[in-house]
Structures are given as structure tokens and as C-alpha cells.
């Protein structure tokens, strides 16, 4: 195996020794910083999430718990898993709640919904970015339940993709998931169909103020 490695590296070195033009600086003239107002940034995020078929709810920081309680009731959710480190003041008043630490009570595959925070959200692409830190759960937690409820604070919304990568700079080796709408496919006649293997429903609660 070590031999193969050396052989391949030798071939690569031989190949790249063959004639190159001058080494030019990497052009990075694309847009880094957005130009939208804070309000427009949030509106863009919500619009684009809606286009992906996500359901949007808005709340003040005081009534996040009530908003989540109501939407669980409305969706008739019976079981909801909540990851470690999820803000206590946002926990819904809801009987079917299962803390991540108590998953031995009920297998994750049988739980209907999951409630998490995120690290950053990108207006331009309608994306929520989770680095699976406190409050965001492990990767499987936001995958197996059919409904993902994600809390996004207004100030977490950036406009551009490069701005999101700036925000992730401290977490470059963390497991990171970009979520842009519910699971979907365009494999049949190139038409986007919601809901294949991941959560078929994505509810976003935007917290203002």
C-alpha cells in the first residue's frame, strides 16, 4: 500500500512538472459582503425558504416556546426530540418532549419531530447551517424525524454564502450540514418533489428582537 502511494505521488509529480503557464494570483472578485438592509435580508431568507416549501413562523424572543407549542399542536406532533444545549426558555410546554439524552426510551426512528437551533442562515440561498453544536443536535437527530423545527435568530441571518463561511471559521472541522428546505428530489423528470428520505417538513421559527 505504501508502494502504491509512492507510485501515485511520483506520477503526479511527473505530470505536474510538464509545462505550466505562469502562476497567477487567484481572482476573488465575487461578492463577499451583501448590501441588503437587515430587514430585507430576513425577508429574502424567508421568501427563499418558502420557495423550498418550508413553513415559516415568526416570534419574539419571549414567545418562542408558545409558538413552538402551537405549531406542534397544529401539526399534531406526538413526539419531539430536543438536543442537549437547547435554550431552556424556548422549550415548548408539550408532553411528548424527549430530551436527546433519553433516547433509549424511544428509538429515534419512531420520533416524529426534532427541535433545534442553527449557527447561521444564508438569505441569498435560503439555507440554514447547523454545525451540530449545543442546541443543534447530532446529524442523525435532524435526519430521521419527519419534521424539523429550526429556530433562527434574526441576527444569525447573513446575506451571502461567503459571509456564512466567515461565520463558520471557528468550526471548520465540525460536522456541518447546510439545509435548504425539506428533503427533495428532481430525479423524476427534473421536477422538484418534496420529501424523500430526510425530513419531509421543515418549519422555521424566526425570532425577532
Amino acid at each position: 500500500m505504501a508502494e502504491t502511494r509512492e507510485l501515485m505521488l511520483a506520477r503526479i509529480r511527473e505530470a505536474i512538472a510538464v509545462q505550466h503557464g505562469p502562476e497567477l494570483p487567484l481572482p476573488r472578485d465575487y461578492e463577499r459582503q451583501g448590501s441588503l438592509s437587515a430587514e430585507a435580508r430576513v425577508e429574502t431568507l424567508l421568501d427563499r425558504l418558502r420557495e423550498y416549501d418550508a413553513q415559516i413562523y415568526e416570534a419574539s424572543s419571549e414567545n418562542v416556546a408558545t409558538t413552538v407549542t402551537n405549531l406542534c399542536r397544529q401539526r399534531q406532533v406526538k413526539s419531539l426530540v430536543v438536543p442537549e444545549g437547547f435554550p431552556a426558555e424556548w422549550l415548548p410546554a408539550f408532553g411528548g418532549m424527549i430530551p436527546e439524552g433519553e433516547l433509549d426510551r424511544k428509538p429515534l426512528s419512531e420520533i416524529e419531530a426534532v427541535l433545534t437551533t442553527c449557527t447561521v442562515a444564508i438569505a441569498h440561498t435560503g439555507s440554514l447551517v447547523l454545525r451540530h453544536g449545543p442546541g443543534e443536535g447530532t446529524r442523525r437527530l435532524t435526519l430521521l424525524p419527519d419534521l424539523h423545527i429550526c429556530i433562527v435568530r434574526e441576527e444569525q441571518v447573513v446575506e451571502t454564502v461567503p459571509e456564512a463561511f466567515d461565520a463558520l471559521r471557528e468550526y471548520v472541522t465540525a460536522p456541518i450540514t447546510f439545509i435548504s428546505g425539506p428533503s427533495a428530489t428532481a430525479d423524476i423528470e427534473m421536477t422538484r418533489i418534496r420529501g424523500v428520505h430526510g425530513p419531509r417538513y421543515l418549519d422555521v421559527v424566526l425570532v425577532r428582537g
Binding site: R48, A174, P175, I176, S180, G181, P182, S183
Partner: peptide, 18 residues
């Protein structure tokens, strides 16, 4: 699409996740 539904980025083995 402006972004596809899921992008996963991770590094090696993460204790208790994956």
C-alpha cells in the same frame, strides 16, 4: 437551484456522531 437541500461537510470521525 440556489442551493440543493443538503450539503454535508465533516472531518474524519466525530465522537458520538456518525
Amino acid at each position: 437551484e440556489r442551493m440543493n437541500p443538503y450539503n454535508s461537510i465533516w472531518t474524519g470521525v466525530h465522537e458520538g456522531d456518525g
